[in-house]
Design a protein around this nucleic acid. Structure first.
Lengths: 348, 348
DNA sequence: GCTTGGCACTCGCAGTATTCGAGTGCCAAC
DNA sequence: GTTGGCACTCGAATACTGCGAGTGCCAAGC
């Protein structure tokens, strides 16, 4: 009984505090929520909640404010995702459906997310590691210079230049091209890497079906380049950021809260760590205040989820904002955008 | 005589105000600078300067602060570029020389610039319009699907997909490839666009050396795609931004000054307009406060310059900061980075 | 005629005092 | 277990005051 009401009180406190940005007192609570009890009773409950560490008061004789632990309980047990309105759904669809390519999808997503949540949005570009090789092309730019183009199932295109030791004629080039294609096309990155390595004969031990020296040398160079392009971490680390202007709403504490966040937004490695490791599926994760890996960001929360085609989370997206945020609404928006983007990747 | 001293006073006021961020009074001025006159004299000069609109006082009985007009005079006539220290030169060289490709150069530049000036840095990616076509490649991904790769002299690579109406065999493809190559390679973008259009025969009027229908259809599709890629404004508009965390030093006025700037940083079109139209050569431009095109950014200044290989300004870079900034130092840094980047583009 | 010292005046800032009221904890009564 | 009452706390807002940096002006001096 009392336990249940206490949780109701906690929920009310979180909701009011998020809405008003001011510590909430017992009297205001009973006025705004129909709890069916008097302020005095609420006070007793508040005292209990404070003992348990869910709320705290900034100074004696002020209202109560949720602690990280309080938000955690709220998110885990007291909130239900706010359903998106029809208008919001339409907005998501209309904005994302206009995208012309992968980069455009990411950029539109980040804007959309920032707009919906009024927070700073972060979207990781689909990572290479889970995707498959759709095509490899070799183009002779000059007698000893090849352009290697790698096209992945996500739509990402990587190109590299390879300088050859000896010139290659068309037949030899076609040979290299077909060997590489057979080894890599259709494989996921990880497998393609190993099978590409396999088609380069170890130096010295010339196999029966190996081929002439020029071809082998070129093959080795191309394979090296491809392997390097595939494992290139720069591609994995790319993220898009949007809605930094929303930081202006942070209100008070500027130097202590906004500054470290602004710095983090430029460090893509940090951002990726904030988004969290991509686990399987599309689970929505919420990291509140101190739960995160960075001391300086102890007053910010992260709401993130994986996304990708066919329920494979090949990248993550989410938002970063003050611990005092509208979790139900934000979580709903993040999930909705992730689902829609995943669907687009499915079709593409 | 007096005129000269008045300018010296203005210079001293600007320097002191930039350093201390506080209105500067007559007494403090004569103490910190050896002007050789008494505070009373300085006061007279100040009154004159105020009449002319170069300085103003925030409120009666406070020190003086430079106006936009005052900064303008300072920048135009009273300041000499601070020479870069040897250490700074080395830092620029060592950071930029490590770049592996064009994007890397831009990204390193923007970080470097933000670090040197402690302001928000903006670097436009080299624009297409002035650069030349180094190579065009056509790759048959499928019988009726071509990958068109466009490589420019700046090192930028654009790729597009073209769907054909009818399949193309290797001979026909080679034909299209060589026609396109002959028309475009080596030309600057603008010329390539027109000469590409010229090689597509007008519908109906089949010329003597035209060729079969499949080839012509494919040719038209490829040319359309190339022309579109070349004139694609998205490529022109790309900019990199760095050092947003430096906005935290803005001190006071948050909502009125920082917020619009944060918003502008996400609008690349706005940023490009701020950097200004690329004029010829590497002229350093300084836009102070209200001189800029945006009302909301009236308390920010922009220091920008063009850069590019062989003294052709194919893109711009610069910084955005408060009107109260160290102009000589900032201008020197911007120019130094622009020169170094231009040199790298020269070599690449 | 410019420069300078003197001087009265202004006015923002910082520190202090004071009031106000929202909110609390506790207790006795229900 | 709930409720109304009540004394108490303490931060925020307001008002007051003295300080001092800075100014403008003027008359004397170089």
């Amino acid at each position: 009984m009392q336990e249940e009401r206490r949780l109701a009180v906690l929920r009310a406190i979180v909701e009011d505090y998020v809405a008003t940005e001011e510590p909430v007192g017992s009297k205001a609570l009973v006025e705004r929520h129909s709890l069916g009890v008097s302020p005095a009773t609420v006070r007793n409950d508040m005292a209990a909640l404070e003992d348990e560490g869910f709320i705290t008061q900034p100074h004696t004789s002020a209202g109560r404010v949720p602690t990280d632990k309080g938000y955690r309980l709220f998110v885990d047990r007291l909130s239900t995702l706010k359903p998106m309105s029809a208008a919001e759904r339409r907005a998501i669809a209309s904005i994302l459906d206009g995208a012309v390519d992968l980069d455009d999808v990411v950029q539109r997503s980040v804007r959309l997310l920032a707009q919906l949540t009024r927070q700073v949005a972060v979207v990781q570009y689909p990572t290479l590691s889970r995707s498959t090789v759709r095509h490899v092309e070799l183009v002779a730019l000059a007698p000893t210079r090849l352009l290697v183009v790698l096209i992945l199932s996500t739509g990402r295109v990587e190109q590299r230049l390879v300088d050859l030791e000896t010139p290659l004629d068309d037949t030899q080039l076609a040979d290299v091209r077909s060997r590489v294609g057979r080894a890599a096309v259709g494989e996921i990155i990880a497998d393609a890497t190993t099978s590409l390595r396999d088609i380069v004969p170890p130096p010295g031990a010339a196999g029966a079906q190996a081929g002439d020296a020029a071809t082998l040398s070129a093959l080795a160079g191309v394979v090296d380049t491809l392997v390097e392009a595939m494992s290139d971490h720069r591609s994995d680390e790319r993220v898009a950021v949007g809605g930094a202007a929303n930081l202006a709403r942070f209100g008070d504490s500027f130097d202590s809260d906004v500054r470290p966040l602004l710095e983090a937004l430029e460090e893509h490695v940090v951002l990726l760590k904030l988004l969290g490791e991509a686990t399987t599926g599309s689970n929505l994760t919420v990291r509140i205040g101190h739960e995160g890996p960075y001391q300086e960001l102890s007053s910010t929360s992260v709401v993130a989820t994986g996304y990708g085609p066919r329920d494979e989370a090949i990248a993550r997206l989410g938002i970063v904002g003050p611990t005092r945020m509208d979790y139900p609404g934000t979580m709903a928006s993040v999930r909705a955008v992730a689902r829609y983007v995943s669907r687009i990747l499915d079709e593409g």
